[in-house]
Design a protein around this nucleic acid. Structure first.
Ligand SMILES: [Zn+2]
Length: 463
DNA sequence: TTTGCCGGGAC
DNA sequence: GTCCCGGCAAA
């Protein structure tokens, strides 16, 4: 058991942050009295690490996506006609299925057809060797990043094809109809513009097929603080061969997974359910488009990324890998939780600092990611329901709670508003001065960064 | 009072 | 190095 868990290190998962799942990489497992193990995860593209219970993470051998309740705004991956496309969950319908927004339209997707991380194997038949070479676990970012480009390309291309081949946007009127609200708009934009970066998530395949593994469903894993005596000794992230193997196995599994055709080969139903177009329904033939996709991948942090668009509501889509980017996903879903309030699910932390907005955490991660992948002249959306640019939330800053955070550059922290990323001298907000001690509280000293514990200048939250 | 952390000091 | 802690300035 223990060994199996250890093998997770380096594998990609989707970790919740303020209700949204983001791609992350397991960086360690620590024993925990209360929960057996806590998994330390680093949000891709950030240096933010956090501890989660197994039930809080979505991923192979962890929690299955379908056992989790995704929140509106969660970016997800779907496979339509063997093409992976990105959508944003808008809501859930009675049957439990999700209404996913894709390119300005909405489709109904069964829970088991949703994926939180990009499926790297299913969509295109990849050779075994390819699979073997993929090494999400490896922290040798550069190496693993190479494999990504194609997939990234695909996602982006899919979006484009989706638009050019399917959506008839020449009719601006109709287009507008689709964009019922801000979100919709943003989503549509997501495929139209090319301002943000999108990267694929290498491993991960929280495949739809639930197959064999027993979901560690933990009915009671609500607010509880994953607090434990995590002794913050760093688990070495050495990408050992052993680990690699573990991950490879996972990938192979993926390759054989029925997910290839999104559960049973049936594609998500694509129906137009937009308001104002009652009765209008049709299936959308999603045809692969190989038409020129002009933009060439760009290398960011050692990873080739395709730029496509702004991420809706601060949920960038990304890849994993240490230097990867963050992809969006939502819902902290303490499995078994009836409804999720954007906040309650905050990962890991106890009740130490109730005053700190959960938002900030997500925002922090978001920003870090944005900062990481957006060029200076791009804007990153901040977290927050509809208005990305407004929402001058005054919440205090709070980098990551419940885990040891690795010195996130100050400019990444706390800002409730969309900010010009890339500019130097980003606005700081009140509360930024807080350090581990204040954030986690003396009673959670074990969560402080080493420096704080040693009464040295905080490393996790620098000013 | 509480925080943050420098400067020492003990492994 | 890692880890603790006295003590002090600032909040
Ligand atoms: Zn600290």
């Amino acid at each position: 058991m223990r060994r199996e868990l250890t093998d997770f290190v380096g594998c990609a998962v989707a970790a919740p942050s303020d209700g949204i799942f983001h791609p992350a990489t397991i960086t360690g497992i620590v024993p925990d009295e209360a929960d057996g193990e806590l998994i330390r995860v680093r949000f891709d593209g950030t240096s933010v690490e956090q501890y989660f219970k197994k039930t809080q993470l979505v991923g192979k051998n962890l929690t299955d996506v379908k056992d989790v309740r995704l929140q509106p705004d969660q970016n997800v991956f779907l496979t339509v006609d063997e093409k992976e496309i990105i959508g944003i969950i808008r809501n859930t319908i009675d049957t439990g299925a999700y209404v996913v927004a894709i390119e300005g339209r909405q489709i109904t997707v069964e829970r088991d057809q949703i994926r939180l991380l990009k499926d790297t194997m299913g969509i295109r038949n990849r050779t075994q060797s390819d699979a073997a070479r993929r090494r999400p676990s490896s922290f040798a970012s550069t190496a693993s990043s190479e494999h990504r480009s194609k997939d990234e390309f695909d996602v982006a291309r899919t979006l484009v094809s989706l638009r050019t081949d399917i959506i008839d946007f020449e009719d601006m009127e109709r287009e507008r109809n689709y964009e019922v609200n801000e979100r919709e708009k943003k989503l549509a934009q997501l495929s139209r513009d090319r301002n943000s970066v999108i990267c694929e998530n290498p491993s991960s395949s929280l495949s739809a097929s639930s197959s064999s593994y027993e979901a560690p469903a933990n009915p009671h894993m609500d607010d509880s603080d994953i607090d434990s005596d995590i002794d913050v000794e760093r688990i070495d992230d050495d990408p050992l061969a052993e680990i690699d193997n573990a991950c490879d196995d996972m990938e192979i599994d993926q390759a054989h997974s029925p997910k290839q055709h999104v559960s049973g080969g049936r594609s998500p139903t694509v129906t137009d359910s937009m308001s104002g177009i009652s009765g209008f329904s049709r299936s959308v033939p999603i045809v692969p488009s190989h038409s020129g996709w002009g933009t060439s991948p760009q290398i960011i942090g050692g990873i080739k990324c395709l730029r496509i668009t702004g991420t809706p509501s601060g949920t960038p889509i990304s890849s994993n890998s240490p230097k990867g980017n963050l992809s969006a996903h939502s819902v902290p879903i303490p499995v078994g939780t009836p409804v999720f309030t954007a906040s309650g699910l905050l990962i890991g932390s106890p009740n130490t600092v109730p005053s700190i907005s959960i938002d900030s955490q997500a925002r922090f991660i978001q920003q870090q990611v944005n900062q990481y992948h957006l060029s200076p002249n791009q804007f990153a959306f901040s977290t927050g329901p509809a208005s990305p640019t407004s929402s001058a939330q005054t919440s205090m800053s709070l980098p990551s709670r419940g885990a040891e955070t690795i010195a996130p550059p100050p400019q990444f922290r706390s800002t409730g508003v969309a900010q010009r990323i890339g500019d130097r001298g980003v606005t700081k907000r009140p509360g930024d001065g807080k350090k581990c001690r204040k954030i986690y509280g003396v009673e959670n000293r074990h969560k402080w960064c080493s420096q704080c514990r040693w009464k040295k200048a905080c490393q996790a939250f620098t000013d």
